[in-house]
Amino acid sequence: MKKRGKGIGSIFYGTGYGNGFPDVSNACAELKADGKIYVYAGATEVGQGAKTALSQIAAEAAGVKLDKVVLVHEDTSKTPDSGTAAASRQTYNTGNGIRIACEQLKQEILSIAKEALGTNTTMGIKINNDMLEVKGLPDKKISLQELYIEAEKMGKTLRVDKAFVAHTMKMDDETGQGAPYWPYTFATYCVEVEVDTDTGKVDVLKAVCAQDVGRAVNPMLVEGQMEGGFAMGMSWALYEDLGLSNGKIKNDNFSKYIIPTSLDMPEIKNIIVEDPESTAPFGAKGIGEPVMIPAMPAILNAIYDAVGIRITKLPASQQEIVRLIQEKENQQ
C-alpha cells in the first residue's frame, strides 16, 4: 500500500569557525593599467559560486560593473590568506574583506579623480561604469584607465590590503555559555513523501525550501545551492550507506554507494527569505551548509506522518522501513 505524509524541518546554523578561533579573511584590491579592479583573495571556488558572488560584492563596493572586476584566487604566491572555503564563511567573511578593501579603493580612486578633474571634493564625482564624471558636468570625465596613468604620474599606487575579522568568542569551559558564532542563518524545509509499505520505498514527491539568506547576492546561485543541498540531505536520509564493516568501507563506488539521480528528485519550490544582516556584506549571510540541513529531518518526519514509524537510525533504507513497519504491526 502507498501512504502519503508531510514533514517539516527547521534549523539554525552559526557561520564560521566559532568559539573565538581567529576567523580572518584578508583581501586586496588594486586598480591596474587596463582600468580593471583586481581583487586578490585566497578563497576557493569549489562549485558554490564564490568566484561570481565575491566578484559581485567587489563590483558593488567599488561602484563599477561586474565585468570591470577580476578576482584572482588560485595562487598562494599572489593571494593573501582568506581562510577556508568551508563553514559557510566565504560570502560573509571574505565578502566582508573584499567589501572593505574595495570601498577603500573606491575612495582612493575618487581622490585621484578629484585632483585630475579639478573638483574640490570627491562628493562631486560619480562613477559611471568605467568613467568618473563630475556630477552635473558629465562631459568632464576620466576613464579608469586614464586615472591609472594619472595616479602613476602622481607616484601613487592604487592598492588596498584589508582584513575582516569575524565576531566570535570562546565559550565558558564549564557551562558552554557565550557567543560562539555570528551570524546565524535559518531555514525551514517541508516535504511530501509517499511510502510503499510493502517495499519500504520512499518517494519524495514535493519539497518546499524556505531559506534565510540575509540578502541574496545572486538569487540564481542561491537556488542552485538550495536544490543541491536538498538533494544531498535527501540522499543522506534515504540512500547513502558506506557498508562499514571491521573498519572497512565496502560500498566504495557508485554502484553500491547510492546518491540520487535526476529520476529520484522531487519537484522543488524555492523560497528565498531576505532579512539583511547589518554586519554582512550588503546584508548577505552564508548559506552553503544550511541549505542542506533541513531536508533530512523533514523527510524523517514525513515518513512518520505517512506510516507512523520513527526513524532513529540512518539511512531510512527500504529494508529498515519494512522492518519498522513490521515491528509496529507486531506490537499492535
Partner: peptide
C-alpha cells in the same frame, strides 16, 4: 536567547521560513 545565552539581535526570519514553507506544502 540561544542555548548558549547569546541574544539574536537581528536578521532572525525563522518564523517567516516556517510559515511560508508550511503554507506552500499545504499544512
Amino acid at each position: 536567547l540561544t542555548a548558549t545565552g547569546q541574544t539574536l539581535e537581528e536578521s532572525v526570519p525563522l518564523t517567516d521560513t516556517i510559515i511560508k514553507a508550511a503554507k506552500e506544502i499545504g499544512y
